[in-house]
Design a protein around this nucleic acid. Sequence first.
DNA 1: CGTTAGCACTCGATATTGGTGAGTGCCAGA
DNA 2: TCTGGCACTCACCAATATCGAGTGCTAACG
Lengths: 346, 346
Amino acid sequence: MAGGQDLNERSLYLLKTLVERYIQDGQPVGSRLLSKDPQLKLSPASIRNVMADLEEMGLIHSPHTSAGRVPTVSGYRLFVDSLLTVKPLASSELDQLQHGLTGEADKASEVLSKASKLLSDVTRMAGVVTLPRRESVTLRHIEFLPMSNTRVLVIFVTDDQEVHNKIIHTHKQFSPAELQQAANYLNSVYSGRSLAKIRDLIIKEMEQDQRQVNQGMIDAVNMAQLTFTEQPNDDYVLSGETNLMGFSELSDMERLKQLFEAFSQKRGVIHLLDQCLQAEGVQIFIGEESGYSAFDHCSLVTAPYSVNDEVVGVLGVIGPTRMAYEKVIPFVDVTAKLLGAALNPK
Amino acid sequence: MAGGQDLNERSLYLLKTLVERYIQDGQPVGSRLLSKDPQLKLSPASIRNVMADLEEMGLIHSPHTSAGRVPTVSGYRLFVDSLLTVKPLASSELDQLQHGLTGEADKASEVLSKASKLLSDVTRMAGVVTLPRRESVTLRHIEFLPMSNTRVLVIFVTDDQEVHNKIIHTHKQFSPAELQQAANYLNSVYSGRSLAKIRDLIIKEMEQDQRQVNQGMIDAVNMAQLTFTEQPNDDYVLSGETNLMGFSELSDMERLKQLFEAFSQKRGVIHLLDQCLQAEGVQIFIGEESGYSAFDHCSLVTAPYSVNDEVVGVLGVIGPTRMAYEKVIPFVDVTAKLLGAALNPK
DNA sequence: CGTTAGCACTCGATATTGGTGAGTGCCAGA
DNA sequence: TCTGGCACTCACCAATATCGAGTGCTAACG
C-alpha cells in the first residue's frame, strides 16, 4: 500500500473532516463547505489544492465534474486506521447491551440470537453472529438410535446445553443392544472431555485397534469417529437484514438482490467471517476489500468472541460503506466481549 | 359479495381474456388489443361498453384516463374462482418435483426445505412450508438431563427421526438417578404412542395421581406434562424470497421492506397459513384479502399437506398478485401431495 | 512560497415544452 | 344491439433552457 507518503498534518485533518462530513450527511462535500470548519482556516481555493492532492493519491474522488468529493475505499481505510476518534459507549447503550445479553438465557443458541438482534437494533444495520466452534466444549452424553438399515441417529449433548444430532452411515447393521453398548462405552470414556480431545483420543484408539480384540469397542470408536469428524462452521444468525433496505446506496434492486442472495447462500459470508477469527480485535472490511462482489457497497465490522480465552466465533455488523464507524466499532467490540462472558459456563 | 349479477357469457369471456392478457405482459390492456382476440368478434367500441360495465361492477379499473384496464382484487377473485382453466403439469415439471422430493432425505426437516426450495425454483417466486404439527407422530425415546437447579433438559426423538429438545422447570431439584428412572418409566409406558395419545394419557394419569402412592411416577408424569404441552406451530421454511425482488410491483422499497419484515417476524405469516389448514384443497389469498398490509400487493397460493390422512401442515407460494395462477395452482397442489407422501413413515 | 480572489467552465438536477400514441367516452347511424 | 367516427385525455419521451454548486487554473498578494 502507498500509505502515508508526504501527507502532512493538514491534509490528514482535511481528509478526516471530509470523511466525517460525508458520513454525516451523505452528500459529496465541496471546498466551500469545508472552508467553514473552524479548525481549518483556509479559503476554498486552498482547500481545492489539497483536495487535488488527495485525489491524486486515490483517497477521494468526485463523482462528476461539478460535485464535491467522496472518500474512496482507500480513503475510508486510512480514515478508520489512523484518523478515527472512537466514541466510547454512552452508559445507557452499555446498559442496553448488558441487559440484552444477560437475561435468562437457557441455551447458547438463544444468546447468539439475542446478540445478533442487539447488534442490529442498536446500529440500525444488520447484525451477524457465527455459531461457536465446538472444539473446547465438552461432551456430556451420547446416544445412538437405530434407523433403517445401516443408518444410525446419533444424539449428543454438550455442556453448553446444546443438543446435537446427526445421521451416520455405518458399515454394517447394528442391533439396538449393540448400539446401547457402544454408547455406554463412549459415555464412560469420553464424557467430560472436550471434542478436540476426543478427536485426539479417537485417532490414538484407532491406531491401537490393530492389536485389540474387542469388536464392540472398535465399532464404538468407529461410530464416534463418524460422529465427531470435524465439520467446519457453516451457519450463523443474522438479524435486521431489512434495516439495509433503507439505505440509498443499496436502493439498487439488483445489488440488494445479490446481497440478500449472499445472505441465504451463507457460504460466502461464512468464509468472510472466518477470516476474522484470527484477528486480535475489531477487524473491518470496507467495500470491495472483502472480495465478494455482493458486498461491494457494504462494510463489515467484526470482532471475534472467546469463551475460556479461546476464540470460538465471530460477530459483526453489516452496513453501507458510509456508516458511523466511530460508533459501530466500540459497539461491536463490547458486544463481542459481553457475548463471550454470557457464554461462559457458569 | 355482489357475485355474478347479470354477467353474461360474453362479459365473462372478456374478463377472462383480459386477466390472462394482463397476467401475461403486465400492461394495462385496452379495447383495441382485446378486439384482436379471434373468439371475441367485437369492435373496440363494443368492447369498451362491456368494459365500462365490468368497471362499474368493480372487477377492473383503469390506472388513468387513457390507459387500458387492469383487474381489481374482485376481478382476480372471480377469475380464479370460476374462469380459470388450470394447466396440467408438464411431465418434465412433474419429474422435477418427484425427483426433488424423493432424493435420499434423512430427516423430515430436510424434506421440508427441499419442498420449499422446489416451490420457489419452479415458480420463480417464494416458497413456504410450515413445520408439520407433531400430533400424530409417535414417540420413540425420551431422556432427561439435569441442568442447574430445577432446570431439566429433556430430549425426545420421534419416529420421523426428528430430535426435539426443550428445557423445563421442575418444582424441585432431581438427582440424575431420579431423572433416569422417570425417563425409563415414560419410555416403557409412552414410547410407540402418538403425542396426541400421550397427552390424553397424561391427563388420565394425573387424575389418578391422588390415589397413587409412587412419587416417582407422579414426578415422571409431571415432567411429561411439561414436555408435551401443546405448543402452536410457530415456524416455517421459506425459500427464494429474493425472487420477489425482481417484480416491478414490489420494486417500491418501503413495500418490500414491510414484506421482508413480515417474513422475519413470522407471526403474521403463520397466522395466515394456519387459516389454510382447514381448507380442502388449494386456497388463495389475493392482495388485500389476506388482511395483512404487508401482503397487499402479493398473492398467496396454499394447500394443506397430510400424513396418514391427517392434515399436518400447509405449503404455498408467495408472489405478486399478477402471477400465472393457472400454472401455480397445480404446482402447489401436486407438491402438497408429494410432500405428504414423502413424509409418510416408510 | 503558500494562500487567496477571481473567473470561465462543467455538469447534474429540475422544470418547461411540444409531440406522439394509446385509449377512452359518447353519439349517431346501420 | 353493434359499430364507425370523433374529440378528448393523459402518460411517456425527447429536446431545451435555466440554475447553481463546485471545479481547475491563473494571477496577485503577503
